[in-house]
Amino acid sequence: MSEPILAVAGLTKRFRGVVAVNDVSIAVPEGSICSLIGPNGAGKSSFFNLVTGYLPPSAGEIRFQGRRIDGLDTHRIAQLGIARCFQIAKPFPELSVLDNVRMGALFGRAGARDVETETAAALALAGLSDLADRPAISLTVGYLRRLELARAIAQRPLLLLADEPCAGLNPTETEEVVDILRQVRQRGVTVLLVEHDMRAVMRVSDHIFVLDAGSKIAEGEPDRIARDPRVIAAYLGTPEPAGPA
């Protein structure tokens, strides 16, 4: 296996008494689609907040392309090539769809680029070309999610962190988002996905990491994860042993 694009070792985040992320180590291979799954409150969003520099870790280290990035400012990490799209879409509300995506192309990963070409390509990939002139606030949830993806793609990231891009979408829309993620990967972008839609996760992922209560409890290929008793226990609970009545 080639050098992982993202390597996290012993990552820990404590909020006062609560340990949101507990000694998590994962390695995301370059060019893959990996998923981070786990029940609500498992620490997935906290994990993304740590990798993007939105929160400082309490312990551990984060390496991107071999380089330490923990402790860097959020905007520096974005300039290195990590983009994130949010579960709750955060468009620039008063700007048009086009201007939202253009903002991603103007900033994002450092280096020269043709802003208009990148913007148009990202809009096309997300299927938003026809809606380019619409104000962002007028979009429905499904299209907002695509806008979020398009803006992240326009950043020309090397690693895309996608936070529940399928949440609240119907099966057709989910299928479209999965398709977009696959195309993103084809363009050489590594994808780390947080998702609750297990069918989507199982179909699209090369590798899955499972978090529960802040700790990594399992990792592996999708069909192994689906059968892993620890994972099943984390999601469904263990059968209660018959006790004295």
């Binding site: 993007t52 905007h75 974005a78 620039f92 903002m103 900033f107």
Partner: peptide
């Protein structure tokens, strides 16, 4: 453009670089 992004949503602006 960066200032406009800040006005619209500062956290997102930072996340975009």
């Amino acid at each position: 453009h960066g200032l406009l992004a800040i006005r619209e949503d500062e956290d997102t602006a930072r996340m975009l670089g």
